[in-house]
Design a protein around this nucleic acid. Sequence first.
DNA 1: TCATAGCACTATATTTTGTCAAGTGCTTGA
DNA 2: TCAAGCACTTGACAAAATATAGTGCTATGA
Lengths: 121, 121
Amino acid sequence: MSPDSAFCPVYASIDLLQEKWTLHIVRALLQSPQGFNELGRTIGANPSTLAQRLERLEEVGIVRRTVHSVMPPRTSYALSPAGMELQTVVDALTCWATAHLKGPDVTCAPDSGSELLQRAK
Amino acid sequence: MSPDSAFCPVYASIDLLQEKWTLHIVRALLQSPQGFNELGRTIGANPSTLAQRLERLEEVGIVRRTVHSVMPPRTSYALSPAGMELQTVVDALTCWATAHLKGPDVTCAPDSGSELLQRAK
DNA sequence: TCATAGCACTATATTTTGTCAAGTGCTTGA
DNA sequence: TCAAGCACTTGACAAAATATAGTGCTATGA
């Protein structure tokens, strides 16, 4: 029917978001913009990978990097409008996770989408 | 405030779903149950990794494995009810992907959640 | 005043993950 | 009868992620 090599945006988006730390980054930035080290601490990622991911996410237009000052280094990473729209994905995930990976009594109102951001070491 | 080692189900679910092929598997099985090789061909995964993922997904109760016959081997993989509920996540992703990774005119009705399943080699 | 801690990263080496190719034992369709 | 398919496994290899250390600089606090 359709040509075998058809480009599927959903397949592509999965390939993008399944890279390690990517979804964690999005979720963290959905809460608030952050600096590099701060973000690393929030999600628990190592600097090398974090740098790669942020570069990629900036390329595809999900993340926006703002340099406030070069020498006392001060940079902040925030989501672009397109990145913000991933809120719906994170919300759905949050809903599913609280329902299936924990106590079964959470009702999952589709409003905030983020109360917890701790990681389990 | 909260203890540092608090378990966060959302963090855990991201860690689960970011493993390579996992979301592809879920998306494929959301369309229809499939056999092992069939599934591998659908998403483009290699058998070794596919086997690992399916084992893991069965453990956590997302996928259900049914053996129809042992010796002409015939097995099928399907989503459990919990796995089915990931439809919302895939829908959100589909919506975002069609809006941001392709033509910008798709309106994204939250009904089917899956029209395309081709992969781009 | 002066060491200390923090910032945004990078470099290198090592470990962890994922992939490729081949092979298993059996059956069904040509 | 014989190639092709099924559900996987194994083992060697490549790619990705990690830890650790270090860069050059400054603002803070003792």
